[in-house]
Simulated scan of single mutants.
Amino acid sequence: MSTLEEHIDIGAPIDTAWDCLHRAEVYPRFLDGVREARSEGEHRTHLDLDAGGRSQGVDIEITDRSMENVMRWQTTSGPDLAGTFSLLPIDREHTRVQARFEYDPGAVKDAFGGPRGFAQAAAIERGMRSDLRRLKQLVEQEG
């Protein structure tokens, strides 16, 4: 498995950012390639993705460690992907969001196409940064 990590500071309280991460219907607004998202129970979400010119449905399971402000997700269908969002309070009005993405490069290539090796990692890293910037904008503008 390969791992990428990024973080961003958000001008909003930790509870506001936490709530946003748990609203599946807003995922298409900040996660590139997510066309539609819907909750399917308390800890399951279905994502309709467009990635690498391919459409695919993916189910994810979400596990919270709410006392630590950590949301972990893992695919239960489609390619083997996992990640975490860790929220750290900077002060009462600012939060650091740390994102971690774990993936098998071969599985990503097979499922979505695109580059291999370093080029793939660079593309995923750019995507994570863009996703986090859009999350920041969403949380700061709408809470």
Rank of each mutant, 00 (worst) to 15 (best):
E93P: 05
S2H: 13
H22P: 01
R23S: 03
F30S: 02
V26M: 05
F30M: 02
R72T: 14
R92W: 10
E6D: 05
R29G: 08
D64I: 04
V58W: 04
M128V: 06
I62Y: 04
Y27Q: 09
D104A: 15
Q120N: 07
G33R: 09
F30Y: 15
M1L: 14
P89Y: 12
E6P: 14
P105H: 04
E25G: 11
K109D: 03
G113L: 00
D131T: 08
R129D: 07
D19V: 04
V139L: 01
S77A: 15
S39Y: 01
Q98R: 11
W73E: 01
E42C: 04
A121D: 06
I60M: 09
S86K: 11
Q137V: 10
L88T: 13
T63D: 11
M71P: 00
L21T: 12
D80R: 14
K109V: 08
D59S: 09
L138V: 01
A122H: 04
D50G: 09
D19W: 06
R129E: 07
G127S: 02
E6S: 09
A111F: 00
P105I: 15
D104L: 11
L87C: 11
H22L: 11
L4C: 02
G114A: 07
T3S: 02
C20E: 08
Q120P: 03
A111V: 02
L4R: 07
H46W: 10
G117P: 08
M71F: 07
R133H: 09
Y27V: 15
R134T: 06
H7S: 12
L21R: 06
D110S: 15
E25W: 01
R72A: 12
